[in-house]
Every structure is written in structure tokens, then in C-alpha cells.
Amino acid sequence: MHESAPGAEKLPGVSIIGASGYSGAELTRLILRHPAVRLERLYAFSQAGKSAMSLYPATGCDMTYHTYEGETLSDIYFLALPHGEAHAIVPRLQAAGRMVVDLSGDFRLRDTAEHERFYGGKKPADAVMTYAMPELSRKEIAASRALSNPGCYATAIILGLAPLFDAASPLPKVRSVACAAMSGLSGAGRSSKTELSFAEMGGNIRAYKVGMHQHTPEIMQALGTSATNPSFDFSFTPLIGPLVRGIYATLTVKLEKPVAQADAAAAYEAFYRDAPFTRVRRQMPEVRHVAHTNYCDVFPAYAGEDGTLTVVSTIDNLLKGAAGQAVENMNIMLGIDQTSGL
């Protein structure tokens, strides 16, 4: 039986629904060691009755997975469920006054038609959540009790582009963006799929969902436009490669006029000056530089005389792209140090 640390009973209690997936396991590890909250309960329908330690020894958690049956006993709920499953749970938690952080795409998009086009199914109309990217909406997060955590590709790409779309940016206007981004295999979740096995993906790379990836409208929404009526040309080619974790995005931007690389770097540094987990680099980022951390590394890597600006952005898809950012958002919502537990 898991035992809380002395005084832990006074801390806000946390439950994780969908705790047996990769993001859920990362949440378990982070919350278990978090100094300002206590882990109360783990829910995982397919693994109910098993211990977290039996699936993920690295978490150091001996708690047992349970089937979620509508309880609202904890102060804070993280939902790490497949898309489409949070719809039925979030409204009940909100009605009970609980804090909620949802890691799925169920509540990310404001536009109903875009949600149905890119995710399928109906967009829930009975729950309102704040789209929670700390670098862009810290004040809104702090004033909220229900948060929709950004997607992994979306996090890397939005953070790579956001300084260009800031109203106060000294950089030229964006005409187009062409993005190619590679994800590790863990981004597809824990469920077994033959095409994602080591035998299929070892030494292999392939593109998928070209032009129709569900993070496309999320990216456009965060940048102040939409996938339906974009204010600039945008193309996104997602790829999957033979690494477990990490996202590596290369963003080729066409600006209305040329900009010096040093000026671009200075604008990026100014934009992220108060962002503890986004690092503007002066050298080429690598996945290994951010793996197992909550950092996003961004590098304005090239500025051409034709107005081309190439930006490279990389994150750990399970942390800054999922569980780590979710804990970061919880910290802001609770009004504690944004970096606590991370």
C-alpha cells in the first residue's frame, strides 16, 4: 500500500485517469514526487487490479490501478485518455468543482467543424476549458480550473513559431510556413500496433497523416488564425522514426522581407525571457538535449536574403509534449512555482 509522506494529507489530492499509458506513467512519476500535491488514486480500466510498479518499475509507485466509476473525491484530476473518452468525464468533474487537466484533444479546438473534421465525432458543448500553453496564456491558466493540455507536435511547432506572430514582434510578417516534424514511437501510445513495432520501425522513417494531422488546426488556432481560413500558407508533414521519445521540428518560414539571424535570435530571446522551460539556443538543438526533461529548445538556425527563416524546435513528447507540461499547468493553476516538481 502506498504511504503518504508526513503532512501529505494536508496537500491537494491528485487522481490520474488513464494512468497506465505512457503519459499516465510519466504523470504518476512526477506527481508521486511533487512537493505540493499528493497522489491519491490511479485509474486504468484495462489494467485494473495490477500495480503501477508491475508495469512501470521506474515510477517507484506501488499503488494499484482501479476502474473509474465516476468518483469526484480528489481535488485535481488529470485525464490521460484516448481522444473521445474525456467528453463523458470532464463535465461531471467540473460540476463537482474539481480542477481538471485533460491531455487529450477533446477540448482543444474552439471551432466545432474543425474538431469534427480532424478528430471525428461530435465536439462536447457542455464543458469549457482553457487551452493551456504556459508560454502564451499564463494569466488565463492561473485564472482557470479546467485546462486542455496542448498536443505534442503542436507544442514544438507553436513554440517554434510564436515569436513571429507576437503583435509586438519587430520581425517581418509571415507569408508561409512549411513544417516537417519527426516523433518518437511513444507518441502513438502504449497499445500494440504491428506497424509501430521495432521490427517495422528499426532503421525506418515514414510520413503519415500528411495534410490532415489533428494538430494542424490547434497550431493555427494558437497562432491567431484557423485551418479553414488561414492568414498564411501552412503545410505540415509529420514523420515517425526509430526513437522512443522526442519530437524534432524543422520550420521553414517565408517572411515578407529578409531579417538578420542575429535579429531573429534577439526577438526570440526577448519573447521567451520569462519562460523557464523554453530555451532559445545558439547552436543546433538535438533530441537528446531535451529527452527526459520539460524543456523545449528553439533555434533560429538560418536567415536567407530571400526572406527565408529556418527555425528548429525540439521537445520530449511525453514531458513537455504531455505530462510535464500538464504538471507545469497544474502548478500555475495552483499559484505555486511554475517549475515545482519538474
Rank of each mutant, 00 (worst) to 15 (best):
P124Q: 05
A146Y: 04
S169M: 08
S15R: 05
K50M: 12
I247M: 04
L30P: 02
G70Q: 03
A326R: 00
V100M: 08
P6A: 12
V100E: 05
G120C: 14
A275E: 07
T216K: 10
G105T: 11
M284P: 00
Y77P: 09
A5S: 12
R175V: 05
M129Y: 04
S235L: 03
A267D: 03
T310V: 15
A181E: 10
G18R: 03
A270M: 01
D62L: 08
G335L: 04
Y119L: 13
I332V: 14
E200T: 09
R245N: 15
M333L: 14
Q325K: 07
V290G: 05
N317D: 12
T72S: 10
A291L: 10
L39I: 02
A142H: 00
A36P: 00
L309Q: 02
L318R: 01
L161Q: 09
A301V: 00
L164C: 11
P285L: 05
Y208I: 14
L196A: 11
A266T: 03
S340R: 15
E114D: 08
C179E: 13
P172I: 03
D316S: 11
E328N: 14
T308D: 03
C61P: 06
D297I: 01
Q214R: 13
S197C: 08
H213D: 15
Y208S: 08
S54I: 13
Y22K: 11
Q283C: 04
S197L: 06
S20I: 02
E256G: 13
S15F: 01
V37Y: 04
T64H: 08
R245D: 09
T237W: 02
A168S: 14
L11Q: 14
A222S: 15
K139Y: 01
M220K: 11
D166A: 15
G151F: 12
G18H: 01
